[in-house]
Design a protein around this nucleic acid. Structure first.
Lengths: 725, 725
DNA sequence: TTGTCTCCCATGGGGAGACAA
DNA sequence: TTGTCTCCCCATGGGAGACAA
């Protein structure tokens, strides 16, 4: 009944990079399912190819039978999607190796029902010598035609005809009967869910062009496509068509579940792997193209180890640009250390790196050695060329760069000088001393003191209606700042819109209007999916907005190696280019900009990251307040605490920071927030926090009821507990 | 700095049932957060009340500080949502008690972003004697007005004005200025996400009525509301309004995740609880109103234990009807046994029950003792009255019942007789002998043999084009059966549509048309959310369609205590009432109707539940084929198997059943499917299976490539392995 | 009193070319 | 060649009462 199984052992010495151009030559079996050369085989083949196109060229899918190392840390990271690094610091419940030697037993190429996000279900069996595995070999290769297109505003817009590139239409679609006045045909194509989509393909307009008309709108709606996303079309030898999509990279999908907490999922990963090792059974891992590589071919891993990367080693790493093409960035390893204290000696992201130049896509500060390649001096020139070409190309996608803008404005001029001065020095805001830059301070000073004086005036006058006061302040500012006009181009994933910055009533208003303009209501505010970056006339980009001041006209921008700032509202007759791109940068900040709220009493509240060190927070607040000493202190603790020094369970706390302009006047700036600590004790060593909307509201009422309800807890207490552990 | 914490220990002796009428008097603190009597307190209060209205009257939310038992099995069941009982049978990785004694540390009332499904995040701390907990006591009670309305077709339909009941409009909305010709005002209300919705409230029409017009359509769209869902409106003392929704009960939301497998989640629950016990820390559990009670108050549990339920004990249990009102059903305990072999002595669903009467909502066969109440003889009469009233009321919701239909048809007549005859006997199809009912067989016989003869004729003629043959068969049937007309009312959650059954080209066609009619495309086919039930002129309902025959005009219906069948197509001048309601009944069947496919060669393939015993399957196939011997046999195994008898990893298999009309002619009926066994070995003792669309397609090609590709595996092998373990 | 239908008009979706980048 | 805009017509959405259950 059962056939003898033979050992078919795949030793693949060198992994060739997974280029899109090679994609179609790859006839790897995705599944230990029987294969058929008939309809089914074709279906499976087309499905696999479509899946790979949707996954993108950089996804290094393991192969069945391959020996791999599985890194649970990476799996956990995929879960939290780098939005919450606390979870990555959770102590594993088992003693488990940081890399687990496994055989790939099966790979199922899957797609999420709602989001169309592709992922692979990889079944892994912890390696044991006596196991023999055999896999069927089959060949289903066929010629397929395909194209992808990054969607433009016209493709998405209310009109919603999809414009095909001429070459794509000719290559991939059946020819039209051109004798007709308006030639047209129906294209029927299945997606990864086997859902059938129909498009009317016509050739019309002046000049004539190929379009998908009827049916396209429905597709866009059904897939929730936005500008910048990609459309994938594929046609097999047999004439069957397939369609797929690729969402803009680096969009974080919501991993949260309403059935299981993230902590439990974390335990689940480790428990599954541990259980599999001990009972010699298989376990399933879901592996997403967008996540970091946590299933790594053994040989590739060993090769990478043999590279012997060291501190100050130069390297290159591949990324996917906004146009879905490969971009290679180079950098230097600056430090080697454990990513987590609970995974001693793990190779997972144990290399801290510094990137050579700015980028419009998010890049990690810590990488794993198998993700990078050494930058050998001989190949240095070649790589640089590739890199520059790539970068140039990507920039071109964002729209034309104004070559010679007319910079009259003094503020901008100062900025420019400043950026040049600081160009070569590392100028990071948090963790590194910011105040050392006196030049930057100088530029800040004028408006800073303006703001300070106004604020002091208002709040020292105790009887003054505070609402009134704040309103007046805003009005004064608007009046003072709107004496010029500006014309600024804003780009989002290839779409360009022009706005007049002077019409906005402060930063928040600008954000709201930009959200409306690009149909991403709420998303800029959230900072989780999109953020604003700024680009000056030279094309240099500012990477991170780490903080802004409410009621102040400055937008502060921090680049990786440069710091620049612009007074948006006093810019006149000039243009700057704004790129909106997804980013997860906010989570690195000890204070969370999205939590910022200015209340009627003029206090600004923000939510802080509980794990922020006092020093970090101090610097952040110092900077955010612009001047003066920031003092984090406890007013009062609130919450429930028992088994002191060991268990903190559900302690609600808020912390309050203020800075003193002089004497004991606690004015101008309050930083508050609440958090829930599930547990802090030496054996656990971490805390989880959860700042929900309602809790932020609680903080609001703290402001309202300040005299009566100052149940605040010290962040120092947190630090105290941390130091104990 | 830290206040002394006092022991405030909540001992609540008797839990009063959670009635909707009591809801507003319940001012329980949901959270150990500070409470304020100002805006924030009101907001929180209104939020909590809205949440509870959305959760429904039956949800027994624990209280903060309460001692409870947590049942991990129930948590796992919530995960799988009873769609995949295999997971419930997975062996826990730790030795963990089936009930865990905990303190409720906090409760967060949450709502899912996408679905608006409410759930509670309950933080539990395993009880240890030295722990002291204190909770703030506060009182935020205020008068609120609210109403709920089950949405009608008019509320949802293309016109989309929402009709308010007069009393609701007067009680809950600000009064309109009736001096205007068409009085109207804007109602602004927040939902649980704090999203603001605006409705134009007008008073117009002839006769005049209160309506929500502008804004309502958007709400319906945004919340994906359907007929039968409920709208919740609430207005606080301060005039603030809140809106919420309740989706039709028993709709299963998709719990699957693309980051973590269900097995890992399963391990995660147990690992979290175990870790919490050992490190004395808290763990979070997500608890949904729709799931069974797996967090049970200790006293309530002990009271239930003291009830000493036994086999043949009578009981009542509360359910939620389609109109969101409480329905009480009574039943008898027929057996007491462990729900899972891995949780010995667990009280979780250890009572197997039999219900007294049919119901339109799904009810479990196994219940836990704290879910039920003893049916004491003295209160028997009272309860029955309540129950009947409730039932009557619910039935009225479905539309009028035709009082005296004209039954001319002989088939129906037979059916009626038959049902009366079998009224008192248990008549389950699978697991119990069906063929014992000779009466039923008799009725079946005429068409049965007609079918058999036709089939034999066609398939014995080997050269005949089979596609042609099947088509002809269908045509013959339609012709023979469509000599009459029928007018049948179909109800779905209160909506009524009239259809002519004679125009349908078989069962599938009817299903397709019904789906179109009710805008639930695909959902009837899937059987996961909706199913058809049938109701005769007396209002008796048929509960389960367990199987139907493709190409046969019979629809078989099995009631809990009765069996009836109707020949839909020969019903003339009569009406019967059809209720479409969600159900999970299919999973109890060894063969899965939704997987059924008839191929061009005339074979019917369906997917079988791998855990079905051979005997079960035999009976099911016997019945489905109507006549003849069913033979499950291996043709060939395909897949990968190693460490024989211990580990089965990713064995793809298909099984094949056929019945013989005479001699060795294997014709007419194939049953096939594929499955993936992650592991079967004695220590693990279970298998997980995964029948994906693509795999069903594989089965399809098996049919196409029958002679060459019979890589099929024996279900007997499965059974063999089961018996070994 | 409440559910469903029909009337009717204004808005906008989509089919087409124009024009510019 | 490809992206965006405008024109223009017809389908549809939604404001209103009619009428029936």
């Amino acid at each position: 009944m059962r056939r003898e199984n033979k050992l078919v052992y795949y030793k693949i010495k060198t992994f060739s990079p997974f280029h899109q151009s090679k994609l179609m030559a790859n006839n790897q079996t995705m599944n230990a399912q029987p294969k058929f050369r008939g309809t089914e085989g074709v279906n499976r083949y087309l499905y696999d190819q479509l899946w790979k196109l949707c996954a993108g060229p950089l996804f290094d899918l393991p192969k069945i039978g391959e020996e791999v190392y599985y890194f649970p840390q990476g799996n956990i990271e995929q879960l939290v999607a780098s939005a919450n690094d606390n979870l990555c610091q959770l102590k594993p419940i088992f003693d488990i190796s940081s890399r687990i030697h496994c055989n790939v037993i099966s790979i199922k190429l899957k797609v999420e029902t709602n989001t169309d996000e592709v992922y692979a279900k990889v079944s892994l069996l912890p390696c044991s010598p006596e196991v023999e595995i055999t896999f069927p070999n089959d060949n289903n290769e066929q010629n397929i035609k395909y194209f992808t297109k990054v969607l433009t505003a016209s493709d998405i817009g209310p009109h919603g005809d999809f414009i095909l590139f001429k070459k794509d239409a000719i290559e991939c679609l059946p020819p039209l009967d051109m004798s007709q006045l308006i030639p047209s045909q129906e294209i029927v194509a299945k997606d990864l869910h086997d859902h059938v989509w129909k498009f009317k393909h016509t050739f019309r307009g002046t000049p004539k062009r190929h379009l998908f008309t009827s049916g396209w709108k429905e597709f866009v709606k059904g897939k929730s496509l936005a500008v910048g996303d990609s459309f994938v079309f594929l046609r097999g030898e047999n004439g069957e068509s397939r369609v797929g999509i690729r969402k803009t990279s680096h969009q974080q999908s919501d991993m949260s579940s309403s059935v299981i907490s993230k902590e439990s999922m974390h335990h689940g990963f480790i428990a599954s792997a541990s259980n599999a090792i001990h009972t010699k059974c298989m376990f399933d891992v879901f592996y997403k193209p967008k996540s970091s590589k946590f299933i790594v071919n053994c040989d590739k891993f060993l090769d990478a180890v043999n590279m012997k990367f060291n501190t100050s080693s130069r390297f290159t790493m591949k990324f996917e640009g906004h146009d879905f093409n490969e971009i290679i960035y180079s950098g230097t390893i600056v430090k080697m250390e454990d990513f987590s204290i609970y995974w001693k000696g793990s190779e997972w992201r144990n290399l801290q790196v510094q990137w050579d130049e700015a980028a419009t896509i998010p890049r990690p500060n810590k990488v794993s050695l198998w993700e990078i390649e050494p930058l050998i001096p001989s190949s240095n020139i070649l790589k640089s060329v590739i890199q520059n070409n790539k970068r140039q190309r990507e920039i071109n996608e964002f729209g034309p760069i104004i070559s010679k803008p007319d910079y009259n404005d003094q503020m901008v001029q100062s900025t420019k000088e400043n950026s040049t001065t600081n160009a070569s020095s590392s100028f990071r805001l948090f963790g590194v001393d910011l105040t050392a830059s006196s030049k930057a301070r100088d530029v800040l000073e004028p408006l800073e003191s303006y703001q300070k004086n106004k604020t002091s005036e208002i709040f020292e006058e105790e009887n003054l209606d505070q609402t009134q006061a704040v309103t007046s302040l805003t009005e004064i500012q608007r009046k003072e700042l709107s004496f010029t006009t500006s014309s600024t181009k804003v780009h989002m994933e290839g779409v360009t819109r022009t706005v007049d910055l002077t019409v906005f009533d402060g930063y928040n208003h600008m954000i709201v209007e930009l959200e409306k303009l690009f149909n991403i209501e709420g998303k800029l505010h959230m900072h989780s999916q999109w953020k604003l970056t700024f680009k000056d006339h030279e094309g240099d980009m500012m990477l991170e907005i780490l903080q802004y001041r409410e009621g102040n006209s400055h937008i502060f921008q921090i680049g990786c190696h440069k710091m620049k700032f612009e007074n948006q509202f006093s810019k006149s007759d000039s243009e700057f280019t704004t790129i909106i791109s997804p980013s997860d940068v906010d989570d690195k900040s000890p204070i969370r900009p999205e939590g910022n709220t200015t209340f009627l009493d003029g206090t600004t509240w923000c939510v802080a990251r509980p794990s922020a060190s006092q020093a970090e927070l101090q610097r952040a607040l110092d900077w955010a307040c612009g001047i003066g000493r920031v003092d984090c202190s406890v007013i009062e603790k609130h919450g429930d605490c028992y088994e002191p020094d060991t268990i903190w369970s559900h302690a609600s706390f808020a912390f309050n920071a203020y800075y003193q302009t002089n004497g004991n006047n606690r004015i101008a700036c309050y930083f508050g927030g609440t958090a829930t600590l599930t547990k802090i004790n030496p054996s656990y060593g971490t805390c989880s926090y959860d700042v929900s909307k309602s809790e932020v509201s609680s903080a609001r009422s703290l402001a309202e009821y300040k005299p009566r309800w100052m149940w605040l807890m010290c962040i120092g207490l947190l630090l105290f507990l941390y130091r104990r552990s």
